[in-house]
Design a binder for these strands. Structure first.
Length: 298
DNA sequence: AACCAGGACACAA
DNA sequence: TTGTGTCATGGT
C-alpha cells in the first residue's frame, strides 16, 4: 500500500499557485483535480489553495518544512519586490495582470538539465522530455497511492552513465550530447554546482557556461530559478519580442543591447520583472494572435 | 502543411 | 566581437 500522507497548511498572501507552477520555470508539476502534484527534492508533494491558505500534502515527515518554504519561497518580501520595479506602463501592467506570480528556488541539477533540454522547444515538449528522463532514470520515491509511479529527477551521476542513444530516446534530439556532457562534468567535479551560491552572479554564470549546452540564456535561467540570483534576466524569444514591443517599438535592438538595457533598467529584482513580463506576454498580450503579430518584419 | 519553439555551437566575416 | 546555418522533434 501507499505511503502515509501528512497534511499541513501555510498562510500565504499574494501567492498565485497556478501562475507560479505553470509559468515555464519548473516542468514537473501536473494538475490533478484542482491540486498540483509534483516532486520537491525527492519528496512527493500535493499543493492546493483554499481560503488564502496553502494546503500541502506530502509523504515526508512533518516538522522541518524548510525544504518546502525554500522551494516555494514563502518568506520573500513580495511587496518590496514589486515596488522596486520602474514606474512604467509595461511592467506595471504586467504586475497588475499577474499579481501573486512567484519565483521558485529549484534544485540546481534538475533546473540545469531541464533548461539544457529547453533550447528551441515549446514548454509542453520540455515537460515531456523531463517526464521521459524521470520515468526512465529517476529513483523511485514514496507515493501515497500505490497505483502511481513517483520518481525523483535523475541525478547527474545516473545520467552520466547513460548512452547518448538512451537520452535521445527521451526525445531531446540534438540536446542529448549536451545533457550527457554536462552530467559528466558535474559528476566528476569539473563544475561544482554546490559552490556557485558563494560566487558573484557573473562568476557563477561563467562557471555554468563552461558546461556543454549552456549559453547565456540557459545559464541565466539556472542562476535565477535555482540559485536566486535576482539580477539574472533570461532573454528568450518571448521576452525579446515582448521587450521590443513594449519598450522599443521602433528601434528593434539586438540581443546584446537588450542585455545591456535589462541589466540596469529593472533594478535589483530584475529577474522577477522578467518572469512577470514573460508570463504577461504569453498569457495576455499575444494570446489572440499566437505570435504572428511580431513576426520578423520584411 | 508550413512555421516555430524559454538556444547553443561552429564557423564565417 | 557580432552575424548566419545547423541541429531533432512535435505543437499549433
Amino acid at each position: 500500500m501507499g505511503a502515509p500522507l501528512f497534511k499541513s497548511t501555510f498562510q500565504v498572501k499574494d501567492y498565485d499557485l497556478d501562475a507560479t507552477l505553470d509559468s515555464g520555470q519548473a516542468f514537473r508539476w501536473t494538475r490533478e483535480g484542482g491540486k498540483w502534484v509534483g516532486v520537491i527534492a525527492g519528496r512527493w508533494v500535493s499543493l492546493g489553495m483554499a481560503n488564502d491558505g496553502l494546503i500541502v500534502r506530502t509523504t515526508s515527515e512533518p516538522g522541518d518544512w524548510h525544504w518546502l518554504r525554500d522551494y516555494l519561497q514563502l518568506d520573500v518580501e513580495y511587496d518590496e519586490i514589486v515596488e522596486s520595479f520602474p514606474d512604467d506602463e509595461a511592467i506595471q501592467g504586467a504586475v497588475k495582470a499577474c499579481r501573486g506570480l512567484r519565483l521558485l528556488r529549484q534544485e540546481p541539477w534538475e533546473c540545469l538539465a531541464s533548461f539544457i533540454c529547453s533550447s528551441s522547444k515549446q514548454i509542453v515538449q520540455i515537460r515531456q522530455i523531463v517526464k521521459n528522463l524521470c520515468d526512465r532514470f529517476g529513483e523511485h520515491i514514496a507515493v501515497p497511492d500505490e497505483s502511481s509511479d513517483g520518481r525523483a529527477f535523475p541525478t547527474a551521476r545516473r545520467l552520466a552513465r547513460c548512452s547518448e542513444g538512451e537520452l535521445r530516446e527521451c526525445k531531446m534530439g540534438y540536446r542529448a550530447p549536451y545533457v550527457l556532457g554536462a552530467a559528466k562534468v558535474v559528476t566528476d567535479g569539473g563544475v561544482d554546482l554546490n559552490a556557485l551560491n558563494d560566487l558573484p552572479c557573473a562568476e557563477a554564470r561563467r562557471e555554468l557556461m563552461k558546461l556543454p549546452g549552456v549559453g547565456r540564456k540557459v545559464a541565466d535561467c539556472v542562476l535565477l530559478f535555482a540559485y536566486g540570483f535576482e539580477e539574472a534576466f533570461p532573454i528568450d524569444v518571448w521576452i525579446g519580442r515582448g521587450l521590443n514591443q513594449l519598450y522599443f517599438p521602433k528601434r528593434e535592438p539586438n540581443r546584446k543591447q537588450l542585455e545591456q538595457f535589462t541589466s540596469t533598467y529593472f533594478g535589483p529584482h530584475a529577474g522577477y520583472a522578467q518572469q512577470y513580463l514573460f508570463h504577461y506576454v504569453r498569457t495576455v498580450l499575444e494570446k489572440p494572435v499566437r505570435g504572428r503579430a511580431l513576426a520578423k518584419k520584411k
